[in-house]
């Protein structure tokens, strides 16, 4: 018998530090599989964020630098500009990309930086213990929206893929989920397409991955997946918002 599914080479053997059922692991694996399939592991430089995935440098079997909260796209710009033959990706959460790092992501997209962004949207701050994120849904209870997110004082959840897809410099923008195998297959395709855009030198690509945070949502992993499908997908529709064909 032949192994048809195992650990990609672009991940180290270090067990993930994430909570049970957290989608970070799946997202890591898909990125790693794409690096393997393109054979680009040895020329890839990843930028890990502040947050639960700050430890991503231990897991990705490629060169990695850790960014300050929100700054990954700026660091990616510096790396890609000084080493254009490298493959550069950022891995960012929603607090990172959609709150403290909005300027950096918007302008990296606007300059059409030839980088790939993996954006994990789980509608909450994980590592700091479950505070409201810019992507937290209306009415969602968090540590800092204890009576539910009230748009009157807290604003509405921000749709980054839709927003960034209005920018001319953005070449590929897609939103995916990981709650079931069919979605995971599509997510992998989107990530592959994003890296293909970079390999072709076509500019900025981003895949937004809707993810669960069972611990801070206070749900079991199975319940969390159900909650994501019932609450997040209706507000954050899956699909491609910008594709290279459109840009060409």
């Amino acid at each position: 018998m032949k192994k048809v599914f195992g650990r990609p080479e672009s991940l180290t053997d270090v067990p993930f530090t994430y909570c049970p059922g957290c989608h970070h692991g799946t997202a890591h694996r898909l990125v790693a599989e794409v690096l393997d399939e393109f054979g680009i592991r040895e020329k890839t430089i990843g930028i890990c964020p502040v947050g639960c995935s700050v430890f991503a440098y231990l897991f990705f079997n490629c060169d990695v630098i850790c960014a300050a909260h929100g700054r990954a796209p700026a660091i990616a710009t510096g790396i890609k500009r000084s080493k254009p033959d490298s493959i550069v990706f950022t891995y960012q959460g929603d607090g990172d990309l959609a709150s403290i790092g909005t300027a950096e992501i918007v302008h990296a997209a606007n300059r059409g930086e030839n980088i790939t962004v993996i954006f994990i949207n789980n509608a909450i701050y994980g590592m700091t213990g479950g505070q409201m994120a810019p992507t937290t849904l209306v009415g969602q209870v968090t540590q800092t929206s204890p009576y539910g997110r009230d748009p009157k004082t807290m604003g509405y959840p921000i749709k980054m893929s839709e927003m960034l897809s209005t920018i001319k410099g953005a070449t590929y923008i897609s939103r995916v989920a990981l709650t079931k195998p069919a979605y995971i297959v599509k997510a992998k395709k989107a990530i592959k397409k994003a890296f293909q855009v970079q390999l072709d030198g076509k500019g900025f690509s981003m895949v937004e991955i809707l993810s669960t945070c069972p611990t801070n949502w206070g749900l079991s992993p199975v319940e969390a997946s159900k909650w994501l499908e019932e609450n997040m997908i209706p507000y954050y529709p899956l699909g491609e918002f910008r594709t290279p064909e459109e840009v060409a």
Binding site: A74, G78, I79, E104
Partner: peptide, 24 residues
Amino acid sequence: AAFVQAESEIAAINMVYGAIATGV
């Protein structure tokens, strides 16, 4: 070579951070 007018001072220093990490 590269010149980038960054979106902010914060971004500019982080672009430096990325570039110098590659040895330039």
